[in-house]
């Protein structure tokens, strides 16, 4: 362990305002991409279902 306490860890030796935004945005972007891909898939499946129902009705 490189830090003595949680507050020292959060402080990052005085570099908190550089380290945390860089880490935060990067991890947020990764999570964001995963969530976006998931939503994209759901939407596509929903579109497929809608079309299927529409075609079943018209048939």
């Amino acid at each position: 362990m490189a830090f003595d306490s949680l507050s020292a860890f959060l402080d990052m030796g005085g570099y908190a305002k550089y380290v945390w935004p860089a880490w935060g945005l990067t991890l947020c972007a990764l999570i964001g991409f995963a969530v976006w891909a998931r939503m994209e898939r759901r939407q596509l499946i929903r579109q497929l279902e809608r079309r299927r129902r529409r075609e079943a009705r018209s048939a």
Partner: peptide, 16 residues
């Protein structure tokens, strides 16, 4: 973030 040692020149900022 927690276990690797700090850099002797740049301190903890190197964790970026």
């Amino acid at each position: 973030l927690a276990y690797s040692p700090p850099d002797y020149q740049m301190g903890n900022s190197y964790r970026i």
